[in-house]
Amino acid sequence: MIKNNTPKFALSLLHPRYWGTLILVGVMYLLSCLPYSWQLTMGKSIGRLAIKLMKKRRRTIERNLELCFPTMLAEDKQRLIAENIDNTGMGLFETGMAWFWSDERVNRHVTIVGLEQMEQLAKEGKGVLMVAVHSMNLELGARAFGIKMSGMGVYRPNSNPCFDYFQYLGRSRSNRTLIDRKDVKSMLHALKTGERVWYAPDHDYGRRRSTFAPLFAVEQACTTTGTSLLVDNTDCVIVPFTMVRDDKGHYTLTLRKAVEDFPKKDPDAAAAFINKIVEESIMAAPSQYMWLHRRFKTRPEGQECLYK
Rank of each mutant, 00 (worst) to 15 (best):
V128H: 03
K308C: 13
L306K: 14
F93H: 07
C162L: 10
P300W: 11
K123E: 09
V218P: 03
L169D: 01
S210N: 02
W291L: 00
M136V: 09
L188V: 15
P35H: 11
C305L: 15
L255V: 04
I46E: 03
T60D: 10
S45D: 10
L11A: 14
A271L: 11
T242N: 03
K276D: 13
S228T: 15
E119F: 11
P240W: 03
D232S: 10
R171D: 05
K257A: 15
L255A: 11
E301T: 15
K77H: 09
S32A: 15
V154R: 02
M290S: 08
K182F: 02
E219V: 05
M152H: 07
E280M: 03
P214F: 05
P35F: 10
R105E: 12
L13N: 13
A10H: 14
V110K: 02
E279G: 07
M136I: 01
K126V: 00
I112F: 08
E279M: 15
T298E: 05
I179L: 10
S135W: 01
C68F: 04
E62D: 08
A272D: 13
A271R: 04
D164P: 08
M97D: 00
F163K: 04
R245M: 14
D76Y: 07
D247C: 13
I112T: 04
Y36I: 15
V237A: 00
K192A: 00
G141V: 02
P267V: 03
V231L: 09
F9D: 07
F69L: 14
V131Y: 07
T193C: 06
F262N: 05
K308S: 15
G125A: 13
D86Q: 10
G226V: 04
T225Y: 02
R294S: 11
R48C: 09
S186K: 05
K248T: 14
D235Y: 11
G153L: 11
K77R: 12
I46L: 15
F273T: 07
R173E: 00
V133H: 01
G127W: 03
A144V: 08
Y205F: 13
K126I: 00
Y155F: 11
S174N: 11
Y165P: 01
A122S: 10
G151Q: 09
R181E: 09
A221E: 04
L253M: 14
D204P: 06
S102N: 10
F69T: 08
R48M: 12
F93M: 10
L65N: 01
M1F: 00
I85E: 01
F9Y: 13
V231E: 04
